[in-house]
């Protein structure tokens, strides 16, 4: 059987919030080591990959690999019933389960709610993501990245990201004119979560649809920092760490500059 007990249900709520607007139905693959999820948006421009290792759970048991086809809207309805400090237990049968049980327990043990979510059949392409050497890594505050994506959305549909030696520049343009926001590599680091790190091998200049980046920033509550990995001719990677026990990575295909 598959059984996973998460002490802080709030984490599962945050994970679901960060994937559900991008991927409606997702395959949650469970094995002895971790739960993984990979899904693409309907236009096959963006992909989300989530990894949550067994050590994130207070109790984790997976006798046989099992794949749960989750409708994220249905799962979200259940998790809306959970408080952040509720314990969440996921349970499913071993072989081709057609449903998954979720049990919510209040911290003081005085309230238990249980739900059964019907699993859905999902025929979706799973993509193999090659190991890539990126030309630039930018680590910054996740809140700042969210702010930049939101602010630039007022000016255009796309953002041009340019990395040079010490700087990363986010630019957008449209009918109102042009907006540029430049972040400079932090000279001193007082608080790691507020600093900017630009690690550059080669300069990059790429353009991406802001609509998707704004969806990616739904993961902001998961981590104080975000890492952008960029290479010319490769999808952008936007990574949020889930503590020491996993990550959410978003991949976004670039726009071809005119």
């Amino acid at each position: 059987m598959f059984e996973a007990k998460l002490q802080q249900g709030g984490l599962l709520k945050k994970i679901l919030e960060s994937v559900k607007d991008l991927v409606v139905d997702g395959l949650w693959d469970c094995d002895g080591a971790a739960i993984t999820l990979q899904g693409m948006d309907s236009s096959h421009v963006a992909l989300v990959e989530m990894l949550l290792r067994a050590e994130a759970f207070e109790h984790y048991r997976c006798d046989r690999n099992v794949t749960l086809g989750m409708n994220h809207n249905h799962l979200s309805k259940i998790l809306k019933c959970a408080n952040n400090d509720d314990i969440v237990i996921l349970k499913a049968a071993d072989q081709n389960p057609d449903s998954c049980s979720l049990i919510l327990e209040s911290k003081n043990g005085e309230k238990t709610s249980d739900f059964v979510v019907s699993l859905v059949r999902i025929d979706t392409d799973q993509l193999g993501i090659p190991e890539t050497e990126y030309s630039a890594h930018v680590k910054m505050s996740s809140g700042e990245f969210q702010r930049i994506c939101r602010d630039l959305s007022q000016f255009g549909d796309a953002v041009q990201i340019t990395c040079s030696k010490q700087d990363v520049k986010f630019s957008s343009s449209g009918e109102t004119g042009k907006a540029n926001i430049t972040l400079t590599h932090s000279a001193t680091v007082d608080k790691e979560e507020e600093s900017v790190t630009v690690d550059l091998k080669e300069p990059v200049d790429l353009t991406f649809a802001l609509r998707f980046l704004n969806l990616f920033t739904k993961a902001t509550p998961i981590s104080d920092t975000v890492t952008l990995s960029l290479s010319q001719e490769a999808p952008l990677v936007v990574e949020y760490k889930i503590g020491d026990s996993g990550h959410i990575r978003y991949f976004l295909a670039p726009k071809i500059q005119e």
């Binding site: 421009v45 963006a46 992909l47 993501i129 001719e233 999808p235 991949f251 295909a253 726009k255 071809i256």
Partner: peptide, 14 residues
């Protein structure tokens, strides 16, 4: 928009 690339141009199907 037509200038948007797709992920399949970069990643192969598993």
């Amino acid at each position: 928009p037509s200038n948007q690339t797709k992920l399949h141009s970069f990643f192969s199907q598993k």
